[in-house]
Design a binder for these strands. Structure first.
Length: 852
RNA sequence: GCGGCUGUGGCGGAAUGGUAGACGCUGUGGACUUAAAAUCCAUUGUCCUUUGGACGUGGGGGUUCAAGUCCCCCCAGCCGCACCA
C-alpha cells in the first residue's frame, strides 16, 4: 500500500520551493511576450472569504498557464487599505485604524499564501502606506494644475448626530445607518475630478474593449448616458427672466402644453417663492424618499408659478410649473412638456388637465393618444411647416429653425457627473492642498510630499479627526509664508484603486508613481479579473485616470485593461433552526436524509441558496477548507462544474469530490510509476491500437485544455482533465510501448493540472522522476498527427431520427458511409415500406437517410 | 418602465446546425470487510408490457435532410439603471 497523500506537508513543501527560487518574481524581459494578469486588490478586512478564493484561483490559473505558454507573466497582489471600516473598527474597539489595517493585512496575507498563488510578492503594495499615497498626492496636484481637479459647492448627506458626512450607502431610508437620525442635505465645498471632460472619449473607448463582457460595456455606456438634443431659451412673460430648457424631442414643439422646472431650480424660488403653498410644495418634493421604490410610486406633482412662456412655434402662452419629476442636475433643470409623446408629461397632463396634442403619427394601430402617449417613430403632423417629416428629420429642422432665431442650439448632454472625491474622514489619502487667506488654494510643494496622516488621533467624538486635530492642519502658506490651513478632506478610496495597477510595475520608485519605461513594457493589463460589482465605478474611474495621467505627461495607454473577466458570486444553502435563527453550515449535518444541528441533533430547515453573507450565516471559512482539504482541492472545486462567470454553489459534496480526485490521481501514479519507463526514454516505433487511442486522447487534451483556459472555460478544462485521467487510470499496459504511452499521458496530465492544482502537480512531477520543477516547465507540445482519431463513430438517421451508430475509418469515402449505413438493422427496419429519396452524408458527422 | 443575461436529467453543467445529457455530484445495486470508513465495479432523463419503441433542451410557431443551437411571438427567473426630458 502506498501511503496517503499528505496534503499539508506537501503543499507547504512546494510553496517553500517556489518562494526560495523566486519562481514568480519577474522583471521586464523583451525576449518574451509579456502578460499582465491582475486580480482586483482586496480590502484587508482581516480574513479572506470564498469570493477571494475564487477570484485568485482564476487569476492564478491564467498566470501559471500563461507562464507555461512562454509569457513573461506579472501577477501582483496588494491591499486596498484605506477606507471607512478601519475607522469604524477604531470607534468600536478603540484600536487605531493604522494598526487595525496592518494587522489585518498580515493575517490575510498568511491566508493567501496558503493558497499557493503564483504571485510576485516582492511587488506587494498597501495603499495606506505613505510611500504609496505620496505619488497619489502628486497626481492630485498634477490634475489640479491641468484643471482636472477642482473645488465646488455640492450637496452632501449630513448626519447631525454623528456630525459627519455620510456616504450614500450609509444612508438607509433617509436616515443615518448608525445614528438613525434623519439625514440632512448640506452644501459643502468639495473636491471633484473632471471625469466629464472625457465623457465622450470614455464612451468611444468602450467600442474598442472587445475583451470585456458585453454586460459591463453596456453598463458603462448607460452610465455615461449620452443624449443629443438641444438647449433653448425663452423669455418668461411678464419678467426679465429667461427659461433655459433642454430637450431631446425638439420635433414635438407643436405638441407642447406646458413648461416645467425643478423644485431646486434657482428660478423656482425667485418666481414663486412668495406664493401661497410654495414652501409646502417644496417640502413635499423633498420628503419623497430617495429609495427607488418611493420614486417609482411617487405621484407627479406640480406647482403652477402663474407665469407663462410662449411657444415659439404656435405663439401660445403655456403655463410654467415647478414639478417634482424634473431633476436639477440633468440638462438645464427645465423642460417643455409634450404629453402626447412622453410618458411622464402625459401623466402630468392628465393630473393637471392640460391638453394633449398629437404631433407624431403612429404608423401602427396604437391606443388613443388621450389614453396613452406614443413614443415611437412616425411622420410629423399638426406642426405646420414640419408636417410629413420623419421624427429624426424634424428634430434637425426644428433645431435649425430655432438656431436661426437665435433661441437655441443643438446640444449633447451626459448623465455622467464629475467625480466627487472629498471625504470628511480620517483614514484616507489627504488632499494635498493648503488654504491661504491671501493666496487662495495652494498645492503642497512636491518636496513636502507626502502629506502624512497624523497618528495621534482619537475617535471619542463625532466628526472628522483631522479637522479637530490640534496641530496637523496648521501650516504656513508655501507661497506667502503666512499662517494657513491644511485641507482636511481626504480622498475617496476609489482614488487608490484607480492607479494601483501602475504602482505594481514600479513599487519601489521613490521619485514617481511609476516609470514610463516600466509602464511602456507592462501596460495595458492583459487580463483583469474581479467581481461585477465594480463594473461601473472602479473600472470607469480607472479608465478616466489613465487618460488624465496621460494628459499630465505620464506614459500610459488610454485603456488600462485590455481584457476583463467578471466572476460570478459564491452561494450556499441557508439553514434555519426551530427558533428561526440562521445556522452556520459548519454547525449543521445531514443525518438519514434530514438536516440537524451537530451540537444537539435538533432539526434544521434547509432554505434558499443565496449569496454567502454573514447575516445569513451561510458562509464557509476558507481557512477551514484550506486546512481540511488543502489548497489544491479548494482550487479544483472552485474551477469544476460552474462556468466562472456564473454563480457557484459551494457544497460539501463538491469539495469532497475534488479532494477524492486529488487522492485518486496521486495514488494511481505513485502505484504505477515503478512500472513505467524512465523519464526521457526514447519513443518506441510502434504502438498497439489501444495505445494509439490513448495517445490521441492525450494530445487532444493538451490542445483542448489550452483552448478552454484561453476561453475561460475552466469547468470544461477540468472535465477534459478528468476524462484523460479516467482513460489513463483505466489503461491496461501489455508491453513497453503501452507503458511509454501511459507515461506520456501521465506527464501531459500533470502539466495540464498544474495551473489548477500546482502543489499536487509538482509532487507527482517529482515522483515521475523530473528534476526541473513544473513551475519552470513549458506547456507540453502536442503532435498534430495524433489529434485526429483513426476512426469516427457517428449516428445514422432516418428522416432525422437516429436509428443506428456506425464506426468508420477516418478516411472513409461517402460511398463507404452510405454502404455501411444502409446495412444497419435499425436503418433497414426504419425503412420498411419506404423508398429512399435522398442520402445526406457528411463524413465524420452524420448520415441521414431521407425516405418517404 | 428601460436595458442586459439566463432557462437542458434529482442537482451543477457539456454539446463548430449533425449520436442531446460530456465531466462531476447525488441515488441504487454489487465487490472487498467481522463491521464501518476508504476504495473498486455496475447502474442512474421520462414513459411504455418486452426484443424494442415513444417522448424529451421554459411554451407556441417557422426555416432546414437535420434545431438545445438560426428566425418570429410569448412565459418565467436573475442582474443593472431608474421620473435623465
Amino acid at each position: 500500500m502506498t501511503e496517503r497523500y499528505n496534503i499539508k506537508e506537501t503543499e507547504k513543501k512546494w510553496r517553500d520551493v517556489w518562494t526560495e527560487r523566486k519562481c514568480f518574481e519577474v522583471t521586464e524581459d523583451t525576449s518574451k511576450p509579456k502578460s499582465y494578469v491582475l486580480a482586483m486588490l482586496p480590502y484587508p478586512s482581516g480574513r479572506i472569504h470564498v469570493g477571494h478564493v475564487r477570484n485568485y484561483t482564476l487569476s492564478d490559473v491564467v498566470a501559471r498557464y500563461k507562464k507555461a505558454k512562454g509569457f513573461n507573466v506579472l501577477n501582483p497582489m496588494g491591499w486596498d487599505a484605506l477606507g471607512l471600516p478601519a475607522e469604524n473598527a477604531a470607534m468600536e474597539r478603540g484600536t487605531h485604524p493604522k494598526d487595525w489595517t496592518y494587522d489585518n493585512i498580515a493575517q490575510m496575507k498568511s491566508q493567501l499564501l496558503s493558497m499557493g498563488l503564483a504571485i510576485d510578492w516582492s511587488r506587494e503594495v498597501a495603499t495606506c502606506d505613505p510611500d504609496y499615497y505620496k505619488h497619489e498626492q502628486k497626481m492630485f496636484i498634477d490634475f489640479y494644475k491641468k484643471g482636472l481637479a477642482y473645488q465646488k459647492e455640492s450637496v452632501v448627506n449630513w448626519d447631525p448626530v454623528e456630525d459627519t458626512v455620510l456616504a450614500n450607502e450609509q444612508v438607509v431610508d433617509g436616515k443615518g445607518w448608525r445614528s438613525g437620525a434623519p439625514v440632512e442635505r448640506r452644501k459643502m465645498y468639495q473636491w471633484f475630478f473632471k471625469i466629464t471632460e472625457y465623457a465622450d472619449d470614455l464612451l468611444k473607448g468602450i467600442e474598442g474593449l472587445d475583451r470585456w463582457p458585453d454586460k459591463v460595456r453596456t453598463m458603462q455606456h448607460n452610465w455615461i448616458g449620452k443624449s443629443t438634443g438641444m438647449n433653448a431659451s425663452f423669455p418668461i412673460n411678464g419678467t426679465d427672466e429667461t427659461l433655459d430648457i433642454y430637450t431631446t424631442r425638439p420635433d414635438t414643439f407643436y405638441g407642447a402644453s406646458f413648461f416645467a422646472m425643478a423644485a431646486d431650480h434657482p428660478l423656482s424660488k425667485k418666481l414663486a417663492g412668495e406664493k401661497e403653498g410654495f414652501e409646502d410644495f417644496i417640502q413635499e418634493c423633498q420628503s419623497v424618499g430617495t429609495s427607488e421604490e418611493a420614486i417609482e410610486k411617487a405621484d407627479k406633482l406640480g406647482f403652477d408659478t402663474g407665469y407663462t412662456v410662449t411657444n415659439p412655434f404656435t405663439g401660445e402662452e403655456l403655463p410654467l410649473f415647478i414639478a417634482n419629476f424634473i431633476l436639477m442636475d440633468y440638462g438645464t433643470g427645465a423642460i417643455f412638456g409634450c404629453p402626447a409623446h412622453d410618458a411622464r408629461d402625459h401623466e402630468f397632463a392628465k393630473k393637471y388637465d392640460l391638453k394633449i396634442v398629437q404631433v407624431v403619427e403612429s404608423p401602427e394601430d396604437t391606443p388613443d393618444i388621450q389614453d396613452e402617449p406614443y413614443i415611437g417613430p412616425g411622420k410629423i403632423m399638426n406642426s405646420e411647416e414640419f408636417n410629413g417629416m420623419e421624427v429624426e428629420e424634424a428634430k434637425t429642422a426644428v433645431i435649425k429653425a430655432l438656431e436661426a432665431k437665435d433661441m437655441g442650439k443643438g446640444a449633447t448632454v451626459y448623465r455622467l457627473r464629475d467625480w466627487g472625491v472629498s471625504r470628511q474622514r480620517y483614514w484616507g489619502c489627504p488632499v494635498p492642498m493648503i488654504h491661504c487667506e491671501d493666496c487662495g488654494i495652494v498645492p503642497v510643494p512636491e518636496k513636502d510630499l507626502p502629506v502624512e496622516l497624523p497618528y495621534d488621533t482619537n475617535y471619542d467624538e463625532p466628526g472628522n479627526p483631522l479637522d479637530r486635530h490640534p496641530t496637523w492642519k496648521n501650516v504656513d502658506c508655501p507661497e506667502c509664508g503666512k499662517a494657513a490651513r491644511r485641507e482636511t478632506d481626504t480622498c475617496d478610496t476609489f482614488f487608490e484603486s484607480s492607479w494601483y495597477f501602475l504602482r505594481y510595475l514600479d513599487p519601489k520608485n521613490e521619485d514617481r508613481g511609476f516609470s514610463d519605461e516600466k509602464s511602456g513594457y507592462w501596460m495595458p493589463v492583459d487580463q483583469y479579473i474581479g467581481g461585477v460589482e465594480h463594473a461601473v465605478l472602479h473600472l470607469l474611474y480607472s479608465r478616466f485616470f489613465t487618460r488624465a495621467l496621460k494628459a499630465c505627461g505620464y506614459e500610459v495607454p488610454d485603456e488600462p485593461f485590455a481584457g476583463l473577466f467578471t466572476q460570478g458570486m459564491v452561494t450556499h444553502a441557508t439553514f434555519e433552526d426551530k427558533e428561526g435563527n440562521w445556522c452556520f453550515p459548519a454547525d449543521v449535518e445531514q443525518r438519514d436524509g434530514s438536516w440537524v444541528k451537530v451540537s444537539d441533533g435538533s432539526s434544521v430547515k434547509r432554505g434558499a441558496i443565496t449569496k454567502m453573507s454573514k447575516s445569513k450565516k451561510n458562509v464557509v471559512d476558507p481557512e477551514d477548507i484550506l486546512d481540511t482539504y488543502g489548497a489544491d482541492a479548494a482550487r479544483l472545486f472552485i474551477l469544476s462544474d460552474s462556468p466562472p462567470e456564473r454563480d457557484l454553489e459551494w457544497t460539501e459534496g463538491g469539495i469532497e469530490g475534488a479532494w477524492r480526485f486529488i487522492n485518486k490521481l496521486h495514488r494511481a501514479i505513485t502505484d504505477t510509476v515503478f512500472d513505467l519507463p524512465a523519464a526521457g526514454t526514447a519513443q518506441p516505433s510502434d504502438f498497439s491500437d489501444a495505445a494509439k487511442k490513448l495517445r490521441s486522447l492525450t494530445h487532444q487534451s493538451i490542445v483542448g485544455v489550452a483552448e478552454d483556459i484561453d476561453a475561460f472555460h475552466m469547468n470544461k478544462a477540468v472535465a477534459r482533465i478528468r476524462e484523460l485521467a479516467n482513460a489513463l487510470t483505466g489503461f491496461k499496459t501489455n508491453n513497453d510501448a503501452d507503458k511509454w504511452a501511459l507515461r506520456e499521458g501521465y506527464e501531459a496530465l500533470i502539466c495540464l493540472i498544474n495551473p489548477m492544482m500546482p502543489h499536487l502537480a509538482e509532487e507527482i512531477w517529482e515522483t515521475l522522476g523530473h528534476t526541473q520543477i513544473l513551475a519552470d516547465t513549458p506547456w507540453p507540445a502536442h503532435d498534430e498527427s495524433l489529434l485526429a482519431n483513426d476512426t469516427v463513430t457517428i449516428g445514422v438517421q432516418v428522416n432525422g431520427k437516429v436509428r443506428a451508430t456506425i464506426t468508420m475509418a477516418a478516411d472513409a469515402s461517402k460511398d463507404d458511409y452510405e454502404k455501411v449505413a444502409m446495412e444497419q438493422d435499425g436503418v433497414q427496419k426504419a425503412l420498411e415500406g419506404k423508398s429512399v429519396k435522398k442520402m445526406i452524408v457528411v463524413p465524420g458527422r452524420i448520415v441521414n437517410v431521407v425516405a418517404g
